[in-house]
């Protein structure tokens, strides 16, 4: 299934009476790679959780290709192609790696596990280990691979590099780039490691207090040191 277009219009969401994201609108074209950046607590994770149907939406619409996801529950959104790899990784600790992957197959044949092992050969080596016995990096690989097996057309990656060693980060980012380059997925990435995000994404959206305050290309952001400093709290990027 080819990558799909994700269109978000005037989306507001939050928890209980608290609105965390307000009037967010943007379109991710099919096959695009977008980084969603911002300081801690600006609503990045809430935005992804809302897209995945896990928070309370107050206003706005979400369309994936020709399908309106707005009133769908989390499971239906996933069936329609929205894949979400949460910050918590959310693997099943008592299941083995292979059993975790089985759960993500969504009715596909067992042979489809090959895709996960091709993407992360380390998981094949650990396939009989329980999820609880994996390192943080391996858990992230497992969480990502399990979502990929569901053949999403739009993939949301929420801080996949958090707490991981640099060598594992490189391995993961290389895998995400391979996924993006084969044109089967539109990928949205929330990441605190600004350089990794800019290397990966072609477009960047910056959130501040739940609203989009900057939208442009990675190159534009890398060249705009004032914006980086002001909105992301980072003195310099990459150079």
């Amino acid at each position: 299934m080819p990558a799909a277009r994700l269109e978000i219009k005037e989306l507001s969401a939050g928890y209980g009476p608290t609105r965390v994201i307000e009037n967010v609108s943007f379109t991710a074209e099919a096959g695009s790679r977008i980084a969603v950046l911002g300081r801690n607590g600006v609503g990045k994770t809430t935005l992804f959780a809302t897209l995945a149907g896990q928070t309370r939406r107050y206003d706005g619409t979400i369309r994936l290709g020709d399908v309106d996801l707005t009133s769908m529950d989390s499971a239906s959104r996933a069936w329609n192609g929205l894949g979400f790899v949460p910050q918590s990784r959310a693997i099943f600790p008592s299941l083995t790696v292979e059993e975790n992957l089985f759960v993500g197959l969504k009715g596909r044949p067992r042979s489809a596990l090959r895709e996960a092992y091709d993407m992360f050969p380390r998981l094949y080596e650990r396939r009989a280990n329980s999820g609880a016995k994996l390192s943080g990096g391996e858990q992230q690989m497992l969480s990502t691979a399990r979502t990929i097996l569901g053949k999403p057309t739009v993939l949301l990656l929420d801080e996949p590099l958090e707490g991981l060693a640099p060598v594992i980060c490189e391995e993961l980012m290389a895998a995400f780039s391979r996924l993006a380059s084969n044109g089967e997925m539109t990928i949205l990435l929330v990441e605190q490691r600004i350089q990794s995000a800019l290397d990966f994404a072609e477009r960047v959206i910056i959130l501040e207090r739940g609203r989009i305050v900057w939208d442009g290309t990675s190159e534009q952001l890398a060249a705009d040191r004032d914006t980086v400093d002001q909105l992301l709290g980072v003195a310099s990027v990459g150079h």
Binding site: A52, G53, Q54, D73, S74, A75, A78, W79, F84, P86, A90, F92, P93, S94, L95, E99, N100, F102, V103, G104, L105, K106, R146, T147, G150
Partner: peptide, 24 residues
């Protein structure tokens, strides 16, 4: 079976199972 594993997944994290496309 995959169905049994799905049930074990639900016991551990129903929100996650739902986000993977299964109706809890």
């Amino acid at each position: 079976s995959p169905f049994g594993l799905l049930c074990r997944g639900i016991r551990q994290d129903p929100v996650r199972v739902s986000a993977m496309g299964a109706s809890v």
